[in-house]
Design a protein around this nucleic acid. Structure first.
Length: 550
RNA sequence: GCGCCAGUAGCUCAGCAGGAUAGAGCAGCAGCCUUCUAAGCUGCGGGUCAGGGGUUCGAAUCCCUUCUGGCGUGCCA
C-alpha cells in the first residue's frame, strides 16, 4: 500500500512538472537500508523519452518531492535512483489505516471477480492419496484461499477418473485378493495389478458383509459390483484424507457421470466437425500435430473404447461452459507430456489456449535420518498422505508443501517436520504468534489493555523495529495480489518467517507491557495485536493453526 | 534423439518478473534467562549465482550454447 502511495505521488509530480511518462517504472523496497525505505528507478526509466540524463531528471523531481512532509529525506543515488526515507508520522498513519481495516486487512478486489477453476489432485480412485497428491492439496487449496481473499471467484475441483482402464485393474486386483481370502491359490500376483495392502483390506471388508455371494454372480456382474464397491470405498478414503488436511473441494466431477451425459460423443463430433480427426489402424485419431503437438493422438482405440484424453477434454470444455475464464490445472511431475495435446485441442476447437494454465508440481522426496525414503507404487510401498499427516501433523505438512515453489523438487525432511524447536520454521512462526498472545494476556492481567485503542497512542511508535514491522504489515496486500497473479503461494511462508523474526527480535529487545508507561505499552500492544491478527490471516490462508499457547 | 523442469553458501532454500555491495534458516564458533514463553535473541565466518557467449545505463533474473540431474516421450491415466 505504501508503494502505491509513492507511485501515485510520483505520477502526480511528473504531470505537474510536465515530464513524459509513457514507460512503466517501479517503486521498490531496496535491499539495503542505506538505500532508504523505498526507491524508484523512475528517472532512469524516463530519461530517454525526456531526452535528459537520469540524474538531471531526478534532480528536477526531488525538488518537488522534498516538499512532501511524509518523506524525511529524498535523495539521488547510484546511476539515478531516487531513494525515499519515510517519516515516522507517515508510518503511523499507514498503521492506523491497517488497524482500522481490521479483519479485512489485505483482502481486496484486485481479482475483479474473475471465475477461476482450480483443478488439483484428480488422483486415480485406485488407492490412497500419496505424497505428491498431498503437495497438490496444500498448494491448490492455498492458492484458492489467496485468490479468494484478493477478489477472484475461484473454485476447487477434483476430477474422478472412475471410468478408465485402471479401475478395471483395480476390480481385478480386488477379485484376486478375495479369492486368496477364500483359500484359493492365485499364483503370483500380476505385475500390473494393485499390490497395496489396502486392496487386501477392501477384500476383507467386502468378504465380511457379503461372503461367498460375490462369487455367485456372473463374471460381468461381479466385476461391476467389485468396481463399484472399490470405487466408493477408495473415494471415501481419499475424502477422509483430504478432510484431515482441511482441504475441501467445491466440486467432484466424475468421469463416469460425464460419459453418461454423452459429452464424449459431443467432443468427438466437435473435433470431427473441426475436420481434425482421421482414421488409421482401426482407431480414430486427433490430428494434434496440426496444432503444435509432436504426434497425433488416439481418441478411440481399435477396440472401440475411448482414451483418457477425450472425457478429460470434455471435462475442460464444461469448465468453460460453466463460465470460468481461467482454468488452472495442477499436475504432478509425470504429466507434462500431456500438455501439448490438450492445448492443441483447445486451439482446434477455437478456444484461447492461454486460458488453460498448467502448473507442474515437481516430485517430493522424503528424507529420514538423511536417507531418502524409497517409494514404489507398483510394490504398494508408498508413504501415503495419511501416513504423513499422522507422523508430522497437518500444520507441518501443509507448511512444508507450500514452502517451495511449484516447479522445484521438494525434499521433505520428516525429522525436521516433526521437531518442535527453532529448526522447524512452522514452530518458529507459530511461536511468534503464541508469544504475542501471551503478552496480550499479561497486559490484560495487569489492566494495561485499554478498552479502545486510540490513534493518539501511535505517536509513541518510532523505533526502527516498530516502523519496520509496520512496513512489513503494509506489504501484505500487494504480496497477496502478486501471489494470486503469479500462482506462487510459497511466498506466504517467506513473509510469515520474516514477520515472525521481526516479532521475536522486537520481543527480545523491548519490554512491551510496562505499567510505568502505559501509553507506550498501549501503542506497542496495538502494534502487536495487529501483527497477531495479520498472522492469523496468513496462517489461515495456509490452512495452518495459530495456537495461542505453546 | 526430442520435449519439459531444475542447477544460488557445507545442507535446505528465498531472491519482490531487469536494479545498487546476492539474502534467510540449519550446520560451525562465541555470547544472552531473578525480567511479558530460551520453541527465543545477539555476534562471527562462509559465494566463479553450473560453465561460456550475447542483449543494455544495469543480468542470478531475458536470449543463445555447453555440462549435470529429474521427469516425459503408450491405442496407461
Amino acid at each position: 500500500m505504501i508503494k502505491e502511495i509513492i507511485h501515485a505521488h510520483l505520477l502526480e509530480t511528473l504531470d505537474k512538472l510536465g515530464i513524459f511518462h509513457e514507460k512503466e517504472f517501479s517503486v521498490e523496497i531496496p535491499n539495503m537500508v542505506e538505500h532508504g525505505d523505498y526507491s524508484t528507478n523512475c528517472a532512469m526509466i524516463l530519461a530517454k523519452e525526456n531526452k535528459k540524463a537520469p540524474k538531471a531528471l531526478a534532480e528536477d523531481l526531488i525538488k518537488t518531492l522534498k516538499k512532501n512532509k511524509d518523506y524525511k529525506k529524498v535523495e539521488i543515488a547510484g546511476p539515478g535512483f531516487i531513494n525515499f526515507y519515510l517519516s515516522a508520522a507517515f508510518f503511523q498513519r499507514i498503521f492506523w489505516e491497517i488497524y482500522k481495516t481490521g479483519v479485512n486487512f489485505s483482502s481486496s478486489d484486485s481479482g475483479k471477480g474473475e471465475k477461476i477453476l482450480i483443478e488439483f489432485i484428480s488422483a486415480n480412485p485406485t488407492g490412497p492419496l500419496n505424497i505428491v497428491n498431498a503437495r497438490a492439496a496444500a498448494f491448490g487449496d492455498t492458492l484458492y484461499r489467496v485468490m479468494n481473499r484478493v477478489g477472484y471467484a475461484p473454485a476447487r475441483e477434483f476430477y474422478i477418473n472412475d471410468a478408465g482402464n485402471q479401475v478395471d485393474i483395480l476390480a481385478e486386483s480386488l477379485e484376486l485378493r478375495l479369492r486368496e481370502l477364500h483359500g484359493e491359490n492365485i499364483g503370483e500376483f500380476p505385475y500390473e495389478a494393485y499390490h497395496g495392502e489396502y486392496v487386501k483390506h477392501l477384500a476383507q471388508k467386502l468378504n465380511a458383509t457379503e461372503g461367498v455371494r460375490v462369487f455367485m454372480m456372473t463374471e460381468k456382474d461381479r466385476m461391476e459390483h467389485l468396481k463399484e464397491f472399490a470405487l466408493a470405498e477408495i473415494l471415501e478414503m481419499q475424502r477422509n484424507s483430504l478432510e484431515r488436511f482441511d482441504v475441501v473441494f467445491d466440486g467432484w466431477v466424475s468421469e463416469k457421470t460425464l460419459r453418461a451425459e454423452g459429452v464424449v460423443e459431443e467432443v468427438l463430433s466437435y473435433l470431427t466437425e473441426a475436420d481434425c480427426t482421421f482414421e488409421k489402424d482401426d482407431a480414430i485419431w486427433f490430428a494434434s500435430t496440426n496444432f503444435g503437438d509432436d504426434k497425433d493422438r488416439v481418441l478411440m482405440k481399435s477396440d472401440g473404447s475411448i482414451t483418457y484424453f477425450v472425457p478429460d477434454l470434455a471435462y475442460h470444455l464444461t469448465k468453460i461452459q460453466r463460465g470460468f475464464t481461467t482454468l488452472i490445472d495442477i499436475f504432478g511431475p509425470d504429466h507434462h507430456g500431456y500438455v501439448p495435446r490438450i492445448k492443441a485441442a483447445f486451439r482446434a476447437l477455437g478456444y484461447d489456449e492461454d486460458m488453460l494454465e498448467i502448473i507442474f508440481l515437481q516430485q517430493v522426496n522424503l528424507f529420514e535420518s538423511g536417507e531418502r525414503v524409497k517409494m514404489s507404487k507398483r510394490a504398494g510401498k508408498i508413504v501415503t498422505m495419511d501416513d504423513l499427516i499422522s507422523v508430522v501433523g497437518k500444520d507441518a505438512a501443509r507448511y512444508f508443501f507450500i514452502a517451495r515453489k511449484a516447479n522445484a523438487h521438494l525434499n521433505f525432511d520428516l525429522e525436521l517436520a516433526m521437531q518442535q524447536n527453532n529448526e522447524n520454521p512452522v514452530y518458529y512462526c507459530q511461536y511468534a504468534h503464541a508469544r504475542i498472545c501471551s503478552i496480550i494476556k499479561k497486559a490484560k492481567k495487569e489492566k494495561i489493555w485499554p478498552k479502545h485503542f486510540k490513534k493518539e497512542f501511535l505517536s509513541k511508535l518510532n523505533k526502527t523495529e516498530e516502523l519496520a514491522i509496520i512496513q512489513k504489515l503494509s506489504d501484505l496486500p500487494e504480496l497477496l495480489t502478486l501471489i494470486a497473479i503469479h500462482r506462487e503461494p510459497h511466498r506466504l511462508t517467506t513473509y510469515l518467517e520474516e514477520l515472525s523474526a521481526m516479532v521475536h527480535k522486537y520481543y527480545a529487545r523491548y519490554k512491551i507491557v510496562s505499567p510505568k508507561s502505559k501509553d507506550l505499552s498501549r501503542a506497542r500492544l496495538m502494534l502487536l495485536d495487529t501483527v497477531k491478527k495479520t498472522m492469523v490471516i496468513v496462517f489461515d490462508l495456509m490452512g495452518i493453526s495459530a495456537p495461542e499457547k505453546m
